[in-house]
Simulated scan of single mutants.
Amino acid sequence: MDLFDDLPEPKQTPVPVSAQQKSTREEEEEVKEEEEKSLKRKREDAECHADKKEEEEEEKEEIKKVCREGLPVLRGYVAARRGEREEMQDDHVMLPDMSSCMSALPCQVSRVSYFAVFDGHGGARASRFAAEHLHHNLAKKFPSGETENLDKLVKKCLLDTFRQTDEDFLRKASSQKPVWKDGSTATCVLVVDDMVYVANLGDSRAVLCRMEATAGGGGGGVGGQRKVVTLALSKEHNPTIYEERMRIQRAGGTVRDGRVLGVLEVSRSIGDGQYKRCGVISTPDLRRCQLTANDRFIILACDGLFKVFSADEAVKFVLNVLQEGSVEKRSGVTEEEVRFEAACQQLASEAVRRGCADNVTVILVSIGF
């Protein structure tokens, strides 16, 4: 016997929706409506947050833009001469705006510029390696975000960068057959907004030309009102300097004829793996200088220039070219740029004319406010 025989057959006519069913459907619609409202509010909040973040970023950029307007305008010019050498062993890098190499800058910094010369010896591989890698290592180690004591961090960054670049090159050099014995000096000018940091190894040099007002506007001034001051921004490292010689001797090395082991002319360098155990190091000297409206230019050059020019002579030579009467006009180039380019090229050529047989590389950095 079927237990469900007594149940009536379902009717085909539509059954009216009960009040309770209506109530349930309305509740579902209300819940759905609330969810849609909630999603809409979240979208609006997210858009509002994004707009606010965008406004904050724009505000930061605006602040940096205002700061940037008061910064010195730097332009780099380079001249290189092989001299009587069979091979050009110098290298150089000019990055008036280094931000493209960096993931982020410190919040208080608007611009970082980098100029460097590398004077190779024993081959061109160490100078080329340093030119290719040192600024990338610097960019990776450079402080970013909110920072305190930026000066200390930048100096640490430079020290770490030189050590890293030297270690990387020595590792590569020692893996070659035969082992590379190349070495290189390094003089780097890093400009953070209006603060110049100079890190150098060896005997390449950096000097700054500053025009200072004279008392009463007379005596020795340019045009009777300003005098030329040459500021050394770097320190030479050769084995004849007392501190350098003592370090070399403590490490078991000797200095003969003014050279390490009678061979190497510099006491600090990148590379030179065979001399590292004799006290030759890659720790740079660091100097700092704030740029002012009185500053005209920086000369950054290998020792090929300074073998035949004193720092003062080089600065005055450049000033004379800048003050010459007529210049050849070129489309899309300002008269000042033409003058600086000419000064840079003529300075390098004059070094060769004066009898410098070495490679000569000169970077001239113009400073304008």
Rank of each mutant, 00 (worst) to 15 (best):
residue 246 M to W: 11
residue 248 I to K: 04
residue 341 E to Q: 10
residue 45 D to C: 14
residue 134 L to A: 01
residue 7 L to N: 11
residue 139 A to V: 12
residue 205 R to Y: 05
residue 300 L to N: 00
residue 262 G to V: 05
residue 8 P to G: 09
residue 286 L to N: 00
residue 363 I to V: 12
residue 164 Q to M: 05
residue 82 R to W: 03
residue 123 G to I: 02
residue 77 Y to P: 06
residue 4 F to D: 15
residue 54 E to I: 12
residue 274 Q to V: 13
residue 117 V to M: 07
residue 133 H to T: 13
residue 273 G to W: 04
residue 277 R to K: 15
residue 175 S to E: 11
residue 188 C to G: 08
residue 192 V to Q: 10
residue 311 A to Q: 12
residue 273 G to R: 10
residue 139 A to P: 07
residue 344 C to Q: 01
residue 207 V to C: 07
residue 368 G to H: 13
residue 33 E to L: 11
residue 267 S to N: 06
residue 25 R to W: 15
residue 226 R to D: 08
residue 332 G to Q: 08
residue 159 L to C: 02
residue 337 E to P: 00
residue 201 L to M: 10
residue 98 M to H: 00
residue 333 V to W: 03
residue 321 V to G: 05
residue 64 K to C: 06
residue 286 L to G: 02
residue 299 I to G: 04
residue 20 Q to S: 13
residue 347 L to S: 04
residue 237 H to K: 02
residue 97 D to V: 08
residue 25 R to M: 15
residue 297 F to K: 01
residue 188 C to T: 14
residue 296 R to T: 12
residue 215 A to Y: 11
residue 105 L to I: 07
residue 149 N to I: 01
residue 1 M to K: 14
residue 34 E to Y: 11
residue 295 D to E: 00
residue 113 S to H: 03
residue 204 S to Q: 09
residue 70 G to E: 13
residue 292 T to W: 03
residue 68 R to V: 05
residue 241 I to Y: 15
residue 282 S to Q: 01
